[in-house]
Structure formats: structure tokens, C-alpha cells
């Protein structure tokens, strides 16, 4: 699965966009808000960063366009995560866990 290797490590922006969409399909504005909420206000994705990231993720097939639900008057473009996107997120979480464990182990060893 080279798709995973090619994308990892994800930037914070890519990671938060993907996990925001993991929950449910959303539009750009929703992703920005979710990212701020999920990171407790630490990560704010700028409009340029988000716009480029969405285009990149679409091109790589990690996200897809989601049809705007009937009855909503908003014309906002919506996005959903694809199966490939989920695989990449899972691989990234695994990678982060490994980093975290290794770091924590070093600190435990130091204390002993």
C-alpha cells in the first residue's frame, strides 16, 4: 500500500481535515470549526491552507465530493472521507502511537 507511505506523516492540517470528515461529511467551514474544537483552539487552518489541502486530498482520492443534501439552501461544497482516506488515517494513528510509546518509554526509563 504505497498510498499510505506517500502521504505519511500527515501535516496537522491534513490530519485534522481527515478526522473531521471521519465523523461525518462536512463543508470547508465545518472542517475549520471542527479542527479548532478538536485541537482545543490550538490548530486554526487558514483559508489558503484548507483550500489547497482539500484539492490535494481530492486528487489523492482520500476524500470525495459529497452530494449536498436535498432541502438545504446552502450551496456550500461538501466532502466525505473515502475508504483510502480511512486507511491513511488509521496508518497515521498507528505511527503516532508508536512515537508516543517510544517517547513515554524513554521518560519512564529515565525515572527508574
Amino acid at each position: 500500500m504505497d498510498k499510505r507511505k506517500e502521504m505519511l506523516p500527515l501535516t496537522e492540517a491534513f490530519y485534522y481535515i481527515l478526522i473531521a470528515l471521519y465523523k461525518e461529511p462536512s463543508h470547508g467551514y465545518g472542517i475549520m470549526q471542527d479542527t479548532e474544537k478538536l485541537s482545543h483552539g490550538r490548530v486554526k487552518i487558514g483559508a489558503g491552507t484548507l483550500y489547497t489541502a482539500l484539492n490535494t486530498l481530492l486528487n489523492k482520492g482520500l476524500i470525495d465530493h459529497f452530494p449536498i443534501p436535498e432541502g438545504t439552501d446552502s450551496r456550500r461544497k461538501m466532502y466525505e472521507i473515502t475508504e483510502d482516506g480511512k486507511i491513511v488515517v488509521a496508518a497515521e494513528i498507528e505511527r503516532l502511537e508508536e512515537l508516543l510509546k517510544a517517547g513515554q518509554q524513554v521518560r519512564i526509563d529515565e525515572k527508574e
Binding site: T11, A13, K44, I45, G46, G48, T49, T52, A53, T56
Partner: peptide
Amino acid sequence: RLYTDRESLIA
């Protein structure tokens, strides 16, 4: 800013 991380600014 429009570009909030280094990676996207480089891109």
C-alpha cells in the same frame, strides 16, 4: 494568514 503552516506555504 491564508497559509497557516510551513508545508502549505512551501507548496
